[in-house]
Amino acid sequence: MYDHILIRYGELTTKGANRSDMEQILERNVRQAFVAWPQVRVGRIHTRIVVELHGVPVEPALQTLQHVFGISSFSPVAVASLDIEAICDTAIQVAKHELAGKGTFKVEARRGNKQFPLDSPAIAREVGSAVLRALPEVRVDVHHPDLVLEVDVRKSQAYVYPRRVPGLGGFPIGMSGRAIALLSGGIDSPVAVWKAMKRGLSLDLVHFHSFPFTSERAQRKVEDLVEILAKWGGPLPLHLISVTEIQSEIRKHCPEGLRTVLLRRMMFRIATKLADELRGGALVTGDSLGQVASQTLSALNAVDAATNLTVIRPLATEDKLDIIDVAKRIGTYETSVQPFDDCCSLFAPRRPKTNPKLEEIDRAEAPLDVENLVAAAVASRECKRIGM
């Protein structure tokens, strides 16, 4: 019945002169989503993207599109030629399929092609009358119909569809530039990555480890999280970087209560070096204001002072339960709660200082050979591309 899918996008249509570039990015991302089905064809018409299925079942195709950012809604469609009789015949087939000969419906028509001889109200009247004649058991209900039968007349053909499936919204990945995201094995940072991708950021992920104090199972857990996130945004680069030496030096020379803040400052410096290499314009973290001692306003200010990049915190004002709800919805929660500790949790002080001053941080950091420690950590980097 349905051999095409019609895709709509919301915020992109308000972006003026940049809209064409953004539409191209979304079209590319939709095409990438169907890479496992080479027979699928993806093209663009005015303010719409059309997917030609060529034998691919419609339901798996619809599920695939529910993982593509930048789509406001989409519909399985039956295609008709630009002739009112052909449109009516197609609408009758769709109504039969959806209503099984009984129930209520209404018709909504749009004439995107202004050369078509009938205007939108006339198209709706003709289609509605044809359906009533062909299916005497059904009736019209304009307020609460069982089926909203939509007809969209375009330049080369008409589309008839029975429903709109909500999309993820947001922007297509790649539209907002590139950033470096710090990914731990916890609940928060994968959700922050997902939300950053939803706003159109293309991401390189960085995970800091401290072998042999963190286990291979902890790294495998992070790689599993990236596999899940790649289902939403396509293949993702994961950079694995050792901070074992940095933690050792902080433990030797710095006050215990400042350990976590000092470690995070070093992580930001390392991530900034990586951003310089990869042309990233921002850092993304899973910090939620006040959730732990290292995420007080004073601590966040102290950490931010270690980088010249914009720091994006998608979860800054989110409650933990709301973050958990998103983690469950996107599929990362069960993996995140596996009991394999990351380097930050193992390094946490017994009594962390919650309101460190920048002058105090500078004094605590003075014994560290910051430049060489950062360089050694960057040199330890191992990169994997996950989700191919």
Rank of each mutant, 00 (worst) to 15 (best):
residue 74 F to N: 03
residue 326 V to A: 09
residue 214 T to C: 11
residue 154 R to Y: 08
residue 200 G to S: 04
residue 363 R to S: 06
residue 48 R to V: 00
residue 46 H to Q: 05
residue 270 I to Y: 13
residue 9 Y to F: 15
residue 320 K to H: 11
residue 100 A to T: 03
residue 326 V to L: 14
residue 286 G to H: 09
residue 310 T to R: 14
residue 115 Q to C: 00
residue 78 A to R: 15
residue 166 P to T: 05
residue 93 Q to H: 15
residue 341 D to C: 01
residue 300 L to T: 03
residue 46 H to D: 00
residue 289 L to M: 10
residue 177 G to M: 09
residue 258 L to M: 15
residue 339 P to R: 01
residue 274 L to V: 06
residue 97 H to I: 00
residue 40 V to I: 10
residue 307 T to K: 11
residue 180 I to V: 15
residue 381 R to G: 00
residue 34 F to D: 09
residue 362 D to H: 15
residue 248 S to V: 00
residue 114 K to G: 01
residue 289 L to P: 14
residue 169 G to P: 01
residue 346 L to Q: 12
residue 346 L to M: 12
residue 41 R to I: 00
residue 74 F to M: 07
residue 357 K to L: 13
residue 322 D to A: 15
residue 260 T to I: 07
residue 308 N to W: 14
residue 177 G to I: 08
residue 293 A to H: 12
residue 231 K to R: 12
residue 357 K to Q: 14
residue 354 T to L: 15
residue 70 G to V: 01
residue 229 L to K: 03
residue 313 R to G: 05
residue 285 T to G: 08
residue 140 V to G: 11
residue 238 L to G: 06
residue 213 F to S: 05
residue 354 T to G: 05
residue 156 S to N: 10
residue 199 R to M: 08
residue 231 K to E: 13
residue 231 K to W: 03
residue 166 P to I: 00
residue 356 P to Y: 15
residue 100 A to F: 10
residue 346 L to G: 11
residue 327 A to E: 01
residue 192 A to Q: 06
residue 355 N to E: 13
residue 103 G to R: 09
residue 117 P to G: 10
residue 300 L to Q: 06
residue 163 R to E: 12
residue 110 R to T: 07
residue 237 P to V: 00
residue 55 G to S: 04
residue 388 M to Q: 10
residue 334 E to D: 15
residue 72 S to V: 03
residue 244 T to W: 14
residue 175 M to T: 15
residue 271 A to R: 08
residue 62 L to A: 10
residue 190 P to H: 06
residue 114 K to M: 05
residue 351 R to Y: 14
residue 207 H to K: 04
residue 325 D to P: 01
residue 178 R to T: 04
residue 229 L to Y: 09
residue 33 A to E: 02
residue 367 P to N: 11
residue 309 L to E: 11
residue 339 P to N: 00
residue 48 R to C: 01
residue 171 F to C: 02
residue 309 L to H: 08
residue 71 I to F: 12
residue 264 R to L: 07
residue 259 R to G: 13
residue 345 S to P: 06
residue 373 L to C: 03
residue 28 R to Q: 14
residue 97 H to F: 12
residue 81 S to A: 13
residue 206 V to L: 13
residue 364 A to Q: 06
residue 226 V to A: 04
residue 12 L to C: 05
residue 271 A to E: 07
residue 304 D to P: 07
residue 58 V to S: 03
residue 21 D to M: 10
residue 128 G to K: 03
residue 125 R to H: 15
residue 108 E to W: 03
residue 283 L to W: 09
residue 36 A to N: 09
residue 185 G to D: 02
residue 382 E to Q: 14
residue 280 G to D: 09
residue 154 R to L: 02
residue 55 G to R: 01
residue 40 V to M: 08
residue 81 S to V: 01
